[in-house]
Write a protein that binds this DNA or RNA. Structure first.
Lengths: 157, 157
DNA sequence: CTTATAAATTTCAAGCTTGAAATATCTGTG
DNA sequence: CACAGATATTTCAAGCTTGAAATTTATAAG
């Protein structure tokens, strides 16, 4: 019934993994909060709206609701509400899919494309500024490890 | 009026920083979602409640509302609601601060301590499992870089 | 003492997020 | 055709989150 005792090294790795998670979460939250703050203050905009428009901007032919929610890893119902708002504001629209009346394709309007282009350019500069403390070696080192981590997490489904 | 042109190397670092941010966010979100899912399924619990209890568990003498919100980097109003809920359920309580009628100290009840102890132990094992794809070198390498990143972010306030 | 300012907390409206249930539509099988 | 499942989306209630305004209490200056 008892678990085998952990060696010192195993305990150490385990504790270090917990510390890593807390630091990963902290760094990620700090950056995300800063982006939210700037989007709000500079553009009176929100991150979810930015994210949905970003997905749509990369797919000029349009995306199904379910494709957007998969890309952003959020629920379907969530996307419904955000696309509703974007549509009301004339930034996106739903287009019928020929041959499937269940689905529709969401596209940015020309107005939506213009608004997003402005936001995206500034957003990229913000990230560059916020991460300016990391040099090329740091960036590459972290990208590699994060890639492997995400792969492992997505496999383990 | 024009910005100086970026060299190839500068562009490259800038683009890599943006990629890093997207990967950092992705890894962090995958882990966080998995933790939320397990808390919900195994304990019918939420991450905000877990986080508040975790802060309280580390401070047996109690924490002021504002101390909790600073530690968790969330708003004061947020903590009000969560502590209200925990109090209703008999897991935490507000204690008057002698000499300052504006503030109160929040403490875990014995019941709250027991509930949290159970959750915390399992939580730590989850993190170890979720991050099992990272070896000791990965973990240490990332911790160092994330520390420097967070320091830089917090300085830049 | 009075008053202005600061500090601690709560309240509130608006928006995000989820999972589950409900609708509507398709698709393959008999 | 009928119909059992699979798909695509929406609806909904509950909970989280924020920033700003409001409330209460403390503190310092005159």
């Amino acid at each position: 019934m008892n678990e085998p005792a952990l060696t010192g090294a195993e305990q150490s790795v385990s504790k270090a993994r917990l510390r890593l998670w807390l630091k990963l979460l902290k760094a990620s939250s700090l950056i995300e909060d800063e982006i939210r703050r700037r989007l709000r203050n500079e553009f009176n905009w929100t991150l979810p709206r930015f994210d949905v428009m970003s997905a749509l901007a990369r797919s000029p032919d349009g995306l199904k609701m379910s494709e957007i929610s998969q890309m952003l890893r959020v629920s379907n119902g969530n996307i419904t509400g955000i696309v509703d708002k974007l549509s009301e504001e004339g930034l996106a629209l739903r287009v019928a899919v020929p041959g499937d009346r269940r689905a529709n394709l969401v596209r940015l309007t020309p107005k939506g494309q213009n608004v997003f282009a402005e936001h995206a350019e500034v957003h990229e500069a913000w990230i560059d500024e916020i991460l300016s403390g990391l040099d090329s070696e740091d960036v590459d080192g972290m990208i590699g490890r994060l890639d492997r981590l995400s792969e492992a997490l997505e496999e383990g489904k």
